[in-house]
Simulated assay, not measured.
Amino acid sequence: MADRGCDLPCAAVQILAQRTTQAVRAAKDQGFDTLALAQQVLLDDEDLRAVEDEITQWREARAAHTAVLDNPELQQASEHPPAGLDTATAARAAADDQHAEAATAASTTHTRNQDLTAPASDLEAAIQCLQPLEQAYSTARHLAELVTGNSPSVRVRMHLEAYVLAARLEEVVTAANTRLHIMSEGRYTLSHSDHQAARPGLGLQITDSLTGRPRKTDTLSGGESFFASLS
């Protein structure tokens, strides 16, 4: 019985010695000269959890980066030769210069547009004010052309005064033919003419029933002129 009781402590001592030796060896493998120095740097539970959380975050970040690197498009791009940094830098500088020039041109154009907007608005307002005057002028000009006989819409270019006289002359000719028909025994007939005169609308012509053709009054003989004048 005494011998068996001694075996248990001896075994425990041996195990302790083995574990201590293993711990000393592990401490030296990690760069510690003694086991005591290794025990001094042991972390408490809170610090250990912080380290474990940091390791977990590192693993998650590593997994995310690995997933990005496993992208087929990135793998295909990695097979191409690297881009020329100097060429890309020069192209970027040229693009920046072009952008600056375009921005300056756009700003200048905007300023000019603002400078022209106000005069354009003033011009539009002036045009609107002048439209009634233009209409009134057009009406007055048309009336003036009608009065002076210069309107392109009239058949005979005749002054208003001549037009009034021509209308009166037609009445005179109608009355004169009554007498002329009797005096010439129906041979001659006076008629009004818009062309047979120096002033349009004041011309006269006479028709001889023997010929049936009208002719100018200045071709009449002395007796014929007398009959016409007397009529």
Rank of each mutant, 00 (worst) to 15 (best):
A197K: 00
S107I: 04
Q114C: 07
T104Y: 00
H195D: 09
T178Q: 09
A162P: 01
P119C: 12
T87H: 10
E161H: 01
P214V: 02
L160M: 12
R62A: 14
A88Y: 03
F227K: 10
G212H: 08
A36L: 09
T174I: 09
D96G: 04
Q205C: 05
H110S: 14
T217M: 03
Q98H: 13
A63N: 11
A198R: 05
E46W: 09
A2F: 02
D45A: 15
I55E: 07
F32A: 12
D47H: 07
P214N: 01
A103W: 03
D33G: 08
S153Y: 09
V24L: 15
S184E: 02
R157S: 13
A176I: 04
N113G: 15
D3L: 11
A175V: 07
G84T: 08
L146A: 04
L48S: 13
A95P: 04
D47T: 02
Q57D: 13
V13D: 07
T117K: 09
D45L: 06
V154K: 10
A77F: 11
D53S: 08
E185F: 06
A17D: 12
T109N: 10
A67F: 05
E54V: 12
R199H: 01
V156F: 14
T148A: 10
L190T: 03
D45K: 05
T56E: 10
N150F: 00
A77N: 12
L69K: 08
H110V: 11
R168E: 12
A120N: 14
T211Q: 05
T174A: 13
S209Y: 04
R4D: 11
D70G: 01
A197R: 00
D33I: 07
D44C: 00
E134P: 00
T217C: 15
E60Q: 11
R59G: 02
Q196C: 00
Y163R: 15
G5E: 12
R199K: 09
L43K: 14
V164T: 07
S191L: 11
P81S: 15
E185M: 02
W58C: 03
A197M: 06
L74G: 04
T20W: 02
M183K: 08
E52R: 02
A88F: 03
N71M: 13
L202F: 04
L8N: 08
Q57K: 10
R112I: 11
A11D: 05
Q39E: 02
T20H: 10
S225Y: 04
L133T: 13
A100N: 05
M1V: 06
I55H: 02
S191D: 10
P9D: 01
A64N: 03
A38V: 01
Q18G: 07
M158R: 14
R49A: 15
H65D: 13
G149A: 14
V13L: 06
G223L: 09
I206M: 04
S221G: 15
Y163G: 04
L204N: 09
D115I: 07
Q75I: 13
A83T: 07
L116A: 12
H142A: 14
R215T: 09
L204Q: 03
L133N: 12
D96T: 12
S153N: 11
S78R: 12
R155L: 10
R62F: 11
A125G: 11
P9C: 01
A26N: 06
D29V: 07
V156A: 01
P81E: 15
C129Q: 09
E134K: 15
T178G: 14
N71L: 14
L123V: 06
